[in-house]
Design a protein around this nucleic acid. Structure first.
Length: 592
RNA sequence: GGUCCGGUAGCUCAGUUGGAUAGAGCAGCAGCCUUCUAAGCUGCGGGUCGAGGGUUCGAAUCCCCCCCGGAUCACCA
């Protein structure tokens, strides 16, 4: 990065000019604001105490020194005490010539011999279909994996399927009671939707029974606890953990329906995993860990047999680890799963992509692992992302107020189809290709809409206002890509390898300055586990290119070297757009 | 109540370790297609950066306090 070099040299300048040593980290270098003339701006205010001169004079002295010391510097100017540095066009042109054909610009190759980063995401429950919240989770997980890989890390994508527990028993019980043997085939709906239907039905019947009990004089809490439906579900869970054959076969059948449904949705989203864990496999390992912890006196047992950990000295609460009837809870299996993964992969880091509603859970998990003295306790990291809210508030599966993932994807694709057909630029495509394009565009709109937002912030999704296809959107960036590709196809007759260094126009230089930033953007995005930085960069790049495209001609440019330079610039831009979008899990079309 | 997260234009969001006059998109209005794709480009209007104090040459950014919103504190996951 030139900015780093500039900071080092500025520190040296202060040292030589004013006899005072400073670290280059103390120098603040910014990109020059659009309204001013320059490429980089050195902020000299902090040095005025050292120079004992006015900001203007200090800036002039440092600027002169830098111009003498750095051959890349063309000139400088000082405005209101800010030192603006202008680099020679040669610097930018060299950068262009060196990189415009690089298909992997900004990407680092895998560093061998390093322990992997393990990233868990998706982690669905098998009692209901995926909704918009899960989409965010999946997109974040996928994108982060790509971004981390781009920095040369080895990444293992894992999914932990929540395939057991009381919630699963609820949908099983409801299907058993009222399902009449329905299957996905028999009624023609996706398996995950079918199971979800019975989960919702259970809640409905359960609430009815609770109301009835309350009408008979029971208080709410007692009614919730003593309703026959919940007791039956609990009994089913005990049978399941005891290995009851009938229960297990029902469970296997319904789970297989769900997996089939999930796989279809994952496929549409372009999501995949290296390894899938099942809670039904990890909970027993967790149980053992809990028992060992109990023996070691780290946990304690109540009279009813339930096992707890007391975290009050860590400013947390007491936490149940194993129920009185011996069945496990959510955290039990998470203890087992962490152990299993660590044994299996010895990762340098285990990232959990899980919503911020579980912040407390992960804090507790980490504290428990620390108390158990596990080596991996400090390697777990909860990537906590914000909820996707509706105008009326949180989505709730149990109440059926969710934006269904499959429905939303369908809707996005069909909107993409309408818009594309209306614009009529793809009439030469065959049916298959057209279908692929609509899907590509619809998914881009959805994915970009989610990923452009800082992960830790909540997203407001208003179903009444459809997701945009204009402006700061995925399709806008795709469009820019298609546009550039179109120009490059037409330019095939030229070699488009410029040989002479032209002097750059503003529009050309603006793009080069952005492209120059790209590797740094990837690094920052990886460091902050934040795909939105890539998304915002891609938009900025596309927007800047469109200005260039609008103001200047490429193929009609009479000066051949200038034309070739613009082609190289277009080539470079199209690569970086493609790479950026790839890091977000978004495909780009040749035409649209 | 405890803990954690958030509050930037009518709406949705950017805003690097504190730096110049806080930026985009959508929505609204006005322009630009005989020229490489108009899903584009240009212009206009729109802001007490939740409120108040403090630190600093300089605060949307850091500190304190308050207001508002959300999450969480289950023998749910």
């Amino acid at each position: 990065m030139f900015a780093q070099l500039l900071a080092q040299k500025t520190a040296l300048a202060v040292n030589e000019l004013y006899g005072h040593f400073i670290e280059s980290e103390q120098v603040s270098i910014n990109k020059t604001k659009k309204d001013y003339n320059g490429d980089y701006t050195v902020v000299v205010f902090p040095f005025t105490k050292i120079s004992k001169k006015s900001p203007e004079l200090t800036a002039h002295e440092i600027g002169q020194w830098l111009q003498n010391a750095l051959p890349q510097v063309e000139s400088f100017n000082v405005i209101k005490g800010y030192l603006n540095i202008i680099l020679k066009d040669e610097f930018w042109i060299d950068f262009l010539f060196k990189n415009y054909q690089n298909l992997n610009f900004g990407l680092k190759s895998l560093k061998e011999g390093q322990p992997p980063i393990l990233i868990e995401f998706s982690s669905p429950n098998t009692n209901k279909p995926l909704h918009l919240g899960h989409i965010r989770n999946n997109l974040l997980g996928h994108s982060l994996s790509e971004i981390l890989k781009a920095t040369g890390l080895s990444v293992v994508k894992v999914n932990l399927v929540n395939d057991r527990g009381i919630h699963i028993c609820k949908s099983m019980l409801a299907w058993k009671k009222w399902g009449n043997g329905e299957t996905p085939e028999s009624i023609g709906i996706k398996g995950d939707h079918l199971v979800g239907k019975y989960y919702v039905l259970f809640e409905k019947k359960y609430q009815e029974e609770v109301s009835q009990l309350k009408a008979n004089g029971l208080d709410e809490e007692t009614a919730l606890r003593s309703a026959s439906l919940i007791l039956e579900a609990q009994e089913m869970l005990r049978k399941w953990e005891a290995g009851d054959a009938e229960t297990l076969s029902l469970w296997e059948m319904m789970n297989s329906w769900v997996y089939e449904g999930f796989n279809e949705t994952y496929k549409r989203l372009g999501i995949s995993f290296d390894k899938i864990y099942y809670e039904s496999d990890t909970y027993s390992i967790g149980k053992k860990i809990v028992e060992e912890g109990l023996k070691a006196g780290i946990f304690y047992q109540k009279e009813d047999g339930s096992i707890w950990v007391d975290l009050t000295s860590d400013n947390l609460d007491q936490k149940l680890l194993l129920r009185s009837d011996g069945t496990s809870v959510y955290i039990t299996q998470d203890l087992g799963c962490a152990e299993l993964r660590y044994q299996e992969f010895s990762p340098q880091k285990m990232i959990y992509v899980v919503g911020n509603e579980q912040n407390y859970h992960f804090e507790v998990l980490q504290h428990i692992l620390q108390r158990l003295g596990k080596a991996y306790a400090d390697k777990i990291f909860h990537l906590s992302y914000g909820m996707v809210d509706l105008p009326e508030g949180k989505m709730k599966s149990r109440e059926g107020t969710v934006v269904d993932a499959d429905d939303l994807i369908d809707e996005m694709v069909s909107t993409a189809r309408e818009i594309t057909l209306e614009l009529g630029k793809t009439s030469d495509l065959g049916e298959n290709e057209a279908q692929k394009l609509f899907s590509m565009i619809g998914l881009a709109a959805l994915k970009y809409f989610i990923l452009k937002v800082d992960p830790k912030k909540n997203i407001l999704f208003n179903p009444a206002e459809s997701i945009d296809f204009d402006g700061n959107t995925g399709p806008f960036i795709q469009y820019t890509h298609a546009r550039i590709r179109s120009v490059l196809r037409k330019a095939n007759q030229w070699s488009f390898s410029p040989t002479e260094k032209i002097n750059l126009l503003k529009e050309e230089k603006e793009i080069l300055k952005l492209l120059y930033e790209f590797p740094f953007v990837i690094e920052q995005s990886a460091k902050g586990l934040d795909p939105s930085q890539i998304a915002n960069f891609a938009y900025e790049l596309a927007r800047t290119y469109n200005q260039f495209y609008h103001n200047l001609s490429i193929l009609h440019e009479p000066d051949e070297q200038r034309m070739l330079t613009r082609l190289a610039l277009s080539q470079f831009t199209v690569q970086v757009i493609r790479i950026s979008m790839h890091l977000l899990g978004i495909e780009v079309p040749e035409q649209m």
